[in-house]
Computed example of a mutant assay.
Amino acid sequence: MTTLRLGTRASALAVTQSEHIAARLRAETGASVELVTISTEGDRSTAPLASLGGQGVFVAALREALVRGDVDLAVHSLKDLPTTPDPRLVVAAIPRREDPRDVLVARDGLTLGELPQGARIGTGSPRRQAQLNALGLGVEVVGIRGNVDTRIGKVLSGECDGVLLARAGLVRLGRADEATEVIDPLQMLPAPGQGALACECRVDDVATTRLLAQLDDSDTRAAVTAERSLLATLEAGCSAPVGALAEIAVGDDGDELWLRAVVGDVSGSPTIRLSASGLPEEAAAVGERLAVEMLAEGADALVAVAAS
Rank of each mutant, 00 (worst) to 15 (best):
M1P: 12
L4Q: 01
L4H: 05
R5Y: 09
L6R: 09
G7Q: 01
G7A: 08
A10S: 15
S11D: 15
S11I: 06
T16M: 10
E19N: 15
H20Y: 05
A23P: 07
A23Y: 09
L25G: 06
R26P: 03
R26T: 12
T29Q: 15
V33C: 12
L35Q: 11
S39T: 13
E41K: 13
D43G: 08
D43M: 11
A47L: 14
A50Y: 00
F58A: 14
L62Q: 00
E64C: 08
A65L: 11
L66I: 10
R68W: 12
R68G: 10
R68C: 10
R68F: 09
V71I: 13
D72A: 10
L73N: 03
A74Q: 05
H76D: 07
K79M: 12
K79N: 13
D80C: 04
D80G: 02
L81P: 02
P82W: 02
P85F: 13
P87G: 15
R88W: 11
R88G: 09
V91T: 15
A93S: 11
P95E: 04
R96Y: 05
P100H: 01
V103S: 01
V103P: 03
V103C: 14
A106C: 08
R107Q: 09
D108Y: 11
G109V: 11
G109F: 12
L110K: 13
G113A: 14
P116T: 07
G122C: 06
P126W: 06
P126I: 08
R128N: 07
N133Q: 15
L135Y: 10
L135K: 11
G138P: 01
G138M: 07
R145N: 15
D149Y: 05
I152S: 03
G153P: 08
K154M: 13
V155S: 04
G158Q: 13
L164A: 02
L165D: 02
A166Y: 04
R172T: 08
R175A: 12
A176W: 06
D177E: 12
E178S: 07
A179V: 03
V182H: 08
I183D: 03
D184K: 08
P185E: 09
P190Y: 01
A191L: 10
G193L: 00
L197N: 02
L197G: 02
A198G: 14
C199T: 03
R202T: 00
R202G: 00
T209M: 11
T209C: 12
L211A: 06
T220K: 10
R221P: 05
V224R: 07
L230V: 03
A232E: 15
T233W: 07
A236W: 05
G237Y: 00
C238Y: 03
A240R: 03
A240I: 07
A240C: 14
A244R: 02
E247N: 13
A249S: 13
G251P: 13
G254D: 10
E256K: 10
E256M: 12
W258R: 15
R260Y: 02
A261W: 01
V263Q: 02
V266P: 12
S267D: 13
G268F: 05
T271N: 02
G278C: 01
L279D: 12
L279K: 15
P280R: 12
A283P: 06
V286H: 07
V286N: 06
A291D: 07
M294S: 09
M294F: 11
A296Y: 04
A296L: 09
A296T: 11
D300P: 06
A301H: 06
L302P: 06
V303P: 04
V303S: 03
